[in-house]
Amino acid sequence: EVTIKANLIFANGSTQTAEFKGTFEKATSEAYAYADTLKKDNGEYTVDVADKGYTLNAKFAG
């Protein structure tokens, strides 16, 4: 089991951190699915991958 950390950075400057656990593939998929649920209210996002894929920095356009 691994933990994927998602740093969510919103256009207004606020941030949120979420963690997803499971296999690498499952946890990564859940992190992206969570970011997708936030698109409606926060706009499209881009992701910078860090820490060999164990940290995802998602920046929302607003």
Rank of each mutant, 00 (worst) to 15 (best):
18 A>D: 04
46 T>N: 08
58 A>I: 15
42 N>S: 08
10 F>T: 04
4 I>S: 00
30 E>R: 08
62 G>Y: 06
27 A>C: 05
58 A>W: 14
19 E>M: 12
61 A>V: 13
32 Y>W: 08
42 N>C: 15
44 E>D: 13
48 D>A: 10
38 L>F: 15
15 T>S: 11
4 I>A: 00
22 G>L: 00
2 V>P: 03
39 K>G: 06
36 D>Q: 06
33 A>D: 08
23 T>W: 05
44 E>M: 09
6 A>K: 01
50 A>K: 12
20 F>H: 02
57 N>H: 08
13 G>T: 06
1 E>Q: 13
31 A>G: 03
40 K>L: 12
56 L>W: 07
20 F>T: 03
13 G>H: 06
12 N>Q: 05
9 I>S: 08
30 E>L: 13
13 G>C: 10
55 T>S: 05
49 V>Q: 06
25 E>S: 09
59 K>T: 14
57 N>G: 02
35 A>G: 02
54 Y>V: 05
32 Y>R: 07
43 G>L: 03
8 L>C: 10
22 G>E: 03
8 L>T: 03
62 G>A: 07
2 V>W: 02
16 Q>W: 11
19 E>V: 13
48 D>W: 11
21 K>F: 13
52 K>C: 15
34 Y>W: 15
30 E>H: 07
25 E>Y: 07
16 Q>S: 12
33 A>N: 09
17 T>E: 09
48 D>S: 14
9 I>K: 07
11 A>F: 09
1 E>F: 14
37 T>R: 11
11 A>C: 14
6 A>I: 15
16 Q>I: 15
46 T>S: 11
20 F>A: 02
36 D>L: 01
11 A>I: 09
7 N>F: 11
25 E>M: 09
42 N>P: 00
16 Q>Y: 12
12 N>T: 07
8 L>G: 03
15 T>F: 12
46 T>K: 09
61 A>E: 13
54 Y>A: 05
52 K>Y: 14
33 A>G: 07
32 Y>M: 10
39 K>H: 04
47 V>Y: 05
38 L>S: 04
61 A>I: 13
15 T>L: 11
36 D>S: 05
55 T>D: 05
60 F>A: 02
3 T>Y: 06
23 T>K: 07
29 S>A: 15
61 A>D: 12
7 N>V: 15
19 E>Y: 15
49 V>H: 07
5 K>F: 10
57 N>V: 11
12 N>Y: 05
53 G>E: 05
47 V>D: 01
58 A>Q: 05
61 A>W: 13
20 F>Q: 02
57 N>E: 07
42 N>H: 15
34 Y>M: 06
62 G>E: 07
3 T>W: 06
58 A>S: 04
50 A>P: 04
23 T>Q: 08
20 F>Y: 06
3 T>Q: 05
7 N>H: 12
5 K>R: 14
9 I>A: 07
59 K>W: 14
15 T>D: 03
38 L>K: 08
47 V>F: 06
56 L>C: 05
57 N>S: 07
3 T>S: 07
58 A>R: 00
43 G>A: 02
19 E>R: 08
60 F>C: 04
54 Y>R: 08
57 N>D: 06
14 S>R: 13
3 T>H: 06
42 N>A: 12
33 A>V: 06
55 T>H: 05
41 D>F: 12
4 I>E: 00
56 L>I: 15
28 T>A: 06
13 G>N: 06
15 T>H: 10
25 E>G: 07
4 I>V: 10
47 V>A: 06
60 F>P: 02
24 F>P: 05
19 E>N: 08
25 E>L: 09
51 D>V: 00
36 D>Y: 00
39 K>E: 06
21 K>C: 10
47 V>I: 14
2 V>Y: 05
17 T>Q: 11
5 K>E: 04
38 L>I: 05
